[in-house]
Write a protein that binds this DNA or RNA. Structure first.
Lengths: 126, 126
DNA sequence: AATATTTTTTAGACTAATTCTAAAAAAGTT
DNA sequence: AACTTTTTTAGAATTAGTCTAAAAAATATT
C-alpha cells in the first residue's frame, strides 16, 4: 500500500457514487497534487485485481469504479445517465447452477428509468 | 435498408461469434470494398437502436456485437477471452420484480472458465 | 424522366479514454 | 549504506470511436 494507492481508495470510498478514472484522478490530485494519471489507472487496475473494488464497464462513456466488491447489479438510468446499485441476491446462484461452477465475477447492468426520474416524469403529468 | 447496412447485418449473422466493429468492418470490406469505418459504426448504432442486434460492452477490449436481440447473458472466458452466449430465462423476471418495471434492456456478463478451457485444463492433469 | 430534397456514405481529421515508456523516486533487502 | 525491486511520474503513443464536410445514393416532387 503506497501513499497514492491509499489516496485513490479513500477517494473511491469517500462517497457512494461511481466515479470515472478521470474524476478519481482530479479528486486524488486535491489530496496529493503530485499524483499522475498513470498511477491512478495502474492502481485502479491493481485494486480490481485484488478484488477490493469493482469496475463497471461503461455503457457509452468511460468506465466507472464501485467501492464495493460485493456482487450486486447496476441500474443505468436511461433518462439522467446515473448509475445506481441494485442488489439481486439470487442471481449468483442462478449463474452457478447454469454454468456448473462459481463464476470468477459477474456484472449486471440494467437500463431503465431510475425512481427519481420516474417521479419527476409523473409530476409533469399532474 | 441500404446496401451497406444489409452487408453489415449479413456479416454479423454469418457466424455465431461476437465480432468487434473493426472485425465487422474488414469482413464487410470483403463484400463491399468501398465501405467505410464510419458507416460501420453508424449502422451498428442504428441496428442497436432498432433492436435488431445487441451491443456487448467490452470488458477490456472493444465492444462486440451480438446478432440476436433476444435477452441472454454472456460468459467471458477468463482463460481464452472468448465470449459465449448463456441463456438465463428467469433473470428478466427477477429484475422486473426488483425494480418494479420492465427494464429497457439488461446485460449480464459472467467471468468464468469456458467449458473448452476447463476440459483442456482437466486433460493436462491426467 | 428531370429536378429537388433528404438521407447515407465516404475519407480522413479529431477526440476521449486508456496504455506504454523510460527515467526518477520510493520502498524493501542484505 | 549499497543494491535490488517496485512504484511513480510526465508525457508520448495507441486504440476505439466520433465528427465533419463533400460526394453519392435514395426518395419525393413536378
Amino acid at each position: 500500500m503506497t501513499r497514492q494507492k491509499t489516496v485513490i481508495l479513500d477517494v473511491i470510498r469517500s462517497d457512494k457514487c461511481h466515479h470515472t478514472a478521470e474524476e478519481i484522478y482530479f479528486l486524488a490530485k486535491d489530496l496529493l497534487p503530485s499524483i499522475s494519471k498513470a498511477t491512478v489507472y495502474n492502481n485502479l487496475k491493481a485494486l480490481v485485481d485484488e478484488r477490493i473494488i469493482r469496475k463497471i464497464s461503461g455503457d457509452d462513456g468511460p468506465d466507472r469504479y464501485d467501492s464495493s466488491y460485493i456482487p450486486h447489479g447496476h441500474l443505468i438510468c436511461t433518462e439522467c445517465g446515473g448509475v445506481f446499485d441494485i442488489d439481486l441476491p439470487c442471481i449468483e446462484t442462478i449463474i452457478t447452477d447454469r454454468i456448473g461452477m462459481i463464476p470468477e465475477s459477474y456484472e449486471l447492468k440494467v437500463r431503465a428509468v431510475c425512481s427519481a426520474c420516474r417521479q419527476r416524469a409523473y409530476k409533469r403529468t399532474l
